[in-house]
Design a protein around this nucleic acid. Structure first.
Length: 594
RNA sequence: GGGGGCGUAGCUCAGUUGGUUAGAGCGCCGGCCUGUCAAGCCGGAGGUCACGGGUUCGAGUCCCGCCGCUCCCGCCA
């Protein structure tokens, strides 16, 4: 770390360095002026070192130091000394020493920033993003980016040790209208034509397999013009991996040791070996989600049969209409205040439920809106089926399968957290497998690919692809960590005839296929090997490993929920000349200037 | 596109049923101080109550609109 201006970083000096003459460069983290002596904490990304200015030793230097203000960038030269007994700061790695300044050089002044870059900052996210370059000075943010780099480095070394070759793929590519909305880029040389930024390198990595690069990877930027979430940004990174001549077990066997290493290092515990696997159907039935958080023990129980026999219209009508009734049991939940249940009902309604039926079994017996309905023998049978015991609270969802699963699956999180049964110190990872290949799109009256149209069905399902598409299982798998989709992949279709069949199933005529994907299907004709792979979400993985709750916290320059960059004020209008060059006419009203 | 939360000093927030001159902590500026490390003590400055309308004798407070941040639904092959 030595350079022309410094001999050490601000995190380097120890007792063994006492007596050395050193030069440090950094930012003034704080200045404590005692009158005859002043202390300056000098910070860089490696740490903090205390510098002392003594009036006895050099009165004019002390005067100069007194003019320093926080966040000025300075260079200090001096001699490392031991701190006097009683003045040692045990909370700093450099706390046993201090630098007695002999020279001070102001490299850059700094106005009073809108917030101080300490870990105790209370600045709101919008301010932190507008002044992200200040925010990133905070030790916590520095540590996050350092650890992110370490994690990515670990991934690279693991994959390279396994023979994977990093290959870059284009950012300017062709729009593939299936899937998420593309970000588009106008072409100056070809007026009226557009590139698209890649949603993922999917087709290029498959072409690399055709080319014989049997083990490929890339830390790839992906861009999707869809609305953000706490775990989703329009621009994000994937560890994109593809291999030839492999099957599901090879992918699991590649990823699991890597994840085990990372969880051991950053979460401090072992993952089971092998990782648990769960079929999609089971995940939906038990947890109401295809990415269940297994740290949360609460489960959904189907009580349709018992509920239909209850003589309660809401339940029996739901079952009669082909729907289901599910129970979510909260052990010990009878003691919870009504306010919690009301909150969950509001949340249930927010995700589409008409209401939330519930009952609690306290010391006085049953209570709640369903108490009367559950009083008799059929009610007892239902409670028994749901495993409800004295002291429990039970929530019910009734209606179409997908809605009931969504609503109760959504409530698992707040309920589990309220009960304190979610172990946040553990990491729960699993593979979710056997996804459906396609799902019926009622609006468009056609089948849509669940994963993407290049995913292979199970070999035996090719026979019934056209007859019963909804029953076909895909050779797709998701890596689920703590309730997040940390990665996903599949074994691909490598035969052009079969790829054609898949496209036909999705409602594309041979002409459509030829126009949109002809270049790709054509490539498969040229000796494509069986292949498959996976993509891991870098931002989500780092977020989970570092215990963060939003990927904004692990991205150096993230965007807001409205996809804006508060630092650069992107997106922004173009000037007339740029629009002319790109042959673009703006038809929407011009946006307000930020 | 829809629903929820938030927006008051540089920052984080309080502000009663609508009522006089809108407060606190931190920060900032000045002074004092020779072992501080969230330094301390004394003094001072600092407000478009996001923005635009409306109701009212009177609006930070009530109503409508709008902008921004955020969480969720839709969306995310």
């Amino acid at each position: 770390m030595r350079s022309a201006l410094r001999t050490h970083t601000c995190g380097a000096l120890r007792r063994a360095d006492v007596g050395s003459r050193v030069s440090l460069c950094g930012w003034v983290a704080s200045r404590r002026d005692q009158g005859g002596v002043a202390f300056v904490d000098l910070r860089d990304r490696h740490g903090v070192t205390q510098v002392t200015f003594s009036g006895d030793r050099d009165a004019s230097l002390l005067e100069k130091a007194s003019a320093l203000r926080p966040e000025w960038c300075v260079r200090v030269t001096g001699v490392v000394g031991p701190r006097p007994a009683g003045a040692v700061n045990a909370t700093l790695p450099t706390g046993e020493v201090e630098v007695g300044a002999e020279a001070l050089e102001v490299l850059s002044e700094c106005p009073v920033p809108p917030f101080w870059p300490t870990d105790r900052t209370e600045a709101g996210l919008d301010l932190r993003l507008e002044y992200r370059f200040i925010d990133l000075r905070r030790p916590k943010m520095t540590r996050t980016l350092v650890e992110r780099a370490q994690i990515v480095s670990t991934v690279r070394r693991h994959l390279e040790a396994q023979g994977f070759l990093e290959v870059e793929t284009p950012l300017l590519t062709r729009s593939t209208p299936e899937g998420s909305r593309d970000f588009v880029v106008p072409s100056r040389l070809h007026p009226g034509s557009f590139y698209a930024l890649p949603q993922s390198p999917q087709l290029f990595k498959q072409l690399l397999m055709v080319s014989g690069f049997d083990r490929y990877y890339q830390i790839a930027r992906c861009l999707r013009d869809e609305d953000s979430r706490a775990d989703r940004q329009p621009e994000f990174s994937q560890v994109d991996i593809e291999g030839s001549f492999l099957a599901e077990e090879d992918v699991y066997g590649l990823i699991e040791p890597l994840l085990r290493t990372l969880v051991q290092r950053y979460r401090g515990h072992d993952l089971p070996d092998p990782l648990p696997r769960m079929r999609y159907d089971e995940a939906m039935a038990r947890f109401g989600s295809d990415k269940p958080d297994l740290r949360n023990p609460l489960e959904l129980v189907d009580v349709s049969r018992e509920a239909a026999a209850l003589g309660f219209r809401v339940f029996s009508d739901a079952v009669a209409a082909g729907g289901v009734v599910n129970a979510l049991r909260l052990p010990g939940g009878a003691a919870l205040p009504r306010k919690d249940v009301d909150g969950w009902e509001a949340e249930a309604k927010a995700v589409g439920a008409k209401g939330l039926a519930w009952a609690k079994w306290g010391a006085e017996g049953l209570a709640g809106p369903l108490a009367k309905v559950l009083a008799g023998d059929p009610g007892r049978a239902l409670l028994a089926a749901a495993g409800v015991r004295e002291g429990d609270l039970v929530l019910f969802g009734a209606g179409p399968f997908a809605l009931v699963k969504k609503v109760l699956g959504h409530l698992r999180k707040p309920c589990g957290e309220r009960l304190g049964v979610v172990d946040r110190n553990r990491t729960a990872a699993l593979w979710v497998t056997d996804f459906p290949l396609v799902e019926w799109n009622e609006d468009e009256k056609r089948w849509d690919a669940c994963h993407h149209p290049f995913t292979s069905p199970r070999e035996e399902d090719w026979a019934v692809l056209e007859q019963d598409p909804g029953a076909v299982r895909a050779r797709a798998y998701d890596l689920v960590v703590d309730g997040y989709e940390a990665g996903g992949g599949s074994i691909r279709i490598h035969r052009p005839d079969r790829q054609q069949r898949m496209f036909s199933l999705l409602g594309m005529s041979p002409d459509d296929v030829q126009r949109r994907f002809g270049w790709f299907v054509d490539a498969l004709r040229f000796g494509a090997p069986p292949h498959g792979g996976i993509a891991l979400g870098v931002d989500r993985l780092v977020m989970l490993l570092l215990g963060e709750e939003a990927i904004q916290e692990v991205i150096a320059f993230p965007k807001t929920a409205q996809a804006r960059c508060l630092l650069t004020r992107a997106p922004a209008p173009l000037d007339e000349k740029q629009l002319r060059d790109a042959s673009i006419a703006v038809v929407a009203p011009p946006p307000k200037q930020g």
